[in-house]
Simulated assay, not measured.
Amino acid sequence: MLILTTLALAQATPQLGPMKTFGDWVVACDNAKRCEMTSLMPEGGDWSEHGWQLAVTRAAGPAGGWSVELFGHDGPAAGLTLKIDGADGAAWRGHAFNGADAAALVAAMANGKGVTLHDAAGKSIGRISLTGSSASLRFIDAEQGRAGTVSAAVARGSKPASAVPAAPALPVIASVRAAGAPAALSPALLDQLWTQSGCAENYEDEPRPGVERHALGGGATLVLVPCGAGAYNFSTVPYVVRSGTATLAGFDTAPGWGGDEGPPMLVNAGFDAKTGELGSYAKGRGIGDCGSAETWVWDGSRFRLTEARAMGECRGASNWLSVWRARAVSR
Rank of each mutant, 00 (worst) to 15 (best):
A8R: 14
L9G: 15
G17K: 03
P18Y: 08
G23R: 05
W25G: 05
V26W: 03
A28M: 06
C29F: 01
D30C: 06
N31S: 02
C35F: 08
T38G: 15
L40K: 02
D46R: 12
S48D: 15
S48M: 10
H50S: 11
G51S: 13
Q53P: 03
R58N: 05
A60Q: 06
G61H: 09
G64H: 08
G64A: 05
G65Y: 08
V68H: 07
F71S: 12
H73F: 13
D74L: 12
D85F: 10
A87I: 01
D88F: 01
D88G: 14
A90H: 13
A91C: 00
R93D: 14
H95Y: 11
N98G: 15
D101N: 11
A102F: 05
A102N: 10
A104P: 05
L105P: 02
V106P: 02
A107V: 03
T116Y: 03
L117Y: 08
D119R: 04
D119I: 13
D119F: 07
A121L: 08
A121E: 14
G122V: 10
I128A: 07
T131P: 00
S133H: 07
S136N: 01
F139Y: 12
E143F: 03
T149K: 04
S151A: 15
A153M: 09
A153K: 03
A155P: 02
P160M: 05
S162K: 14
A163S: 15
V164A: 03
A169S: 13
V172C: 00
A174F: 08
A178G: 08
A178V: 01
G180H: 07
A181R: 12
L185N: 00
P187C: 01
L189C: 01
Q192S: 07
Q192A: 02
Q192T: 08
S197K: 03
G198Q: 01
G198A: 01
G198W: 03
A200R: 15
E201T: 13
E212T: 10
E212R: 12
R213E: 00
H214N: 13
L216P: 09
G218E: 05
L222R: 09
V223P: 06
L224Y: 01
P226G: 07
G228R: 02
G228D: 10
A229V: 12
G230T: 14
A231K: 15
N233C: 07
N233W: 09
T236C: 04
V237Y: 04
V237L: 03
Y239A: 04
V240Q: 07
S243I: 01
G244C: 08
T245D: 11
F251T: 02
D252K: 03
T253Q: 11
T253R: 10
T253N: 02
A254S: 14
D260N: 09
E261K: 11
P263T: 04
P263S: 05
P264G: 04
P264A: 05
V267C: 04
N268T: 07
G276H: 00
E277C: 00
L278V: 08
G279K: 12
A282S: 14
A282W: 09
K283T: 09
K283Y: 14
R285W: 04
G288V: 00
C290G: 09
S292D: 13
T295R: 13
W298D: 07
G300H: 01
R302M: 13
R304E: 13
R309G: 03
M311A: 03
G316R: 04
G316F: 07
S318P: 04
L321S: 04
R327P: 00
V329N: 04
R331A: 13
R331Q: 14
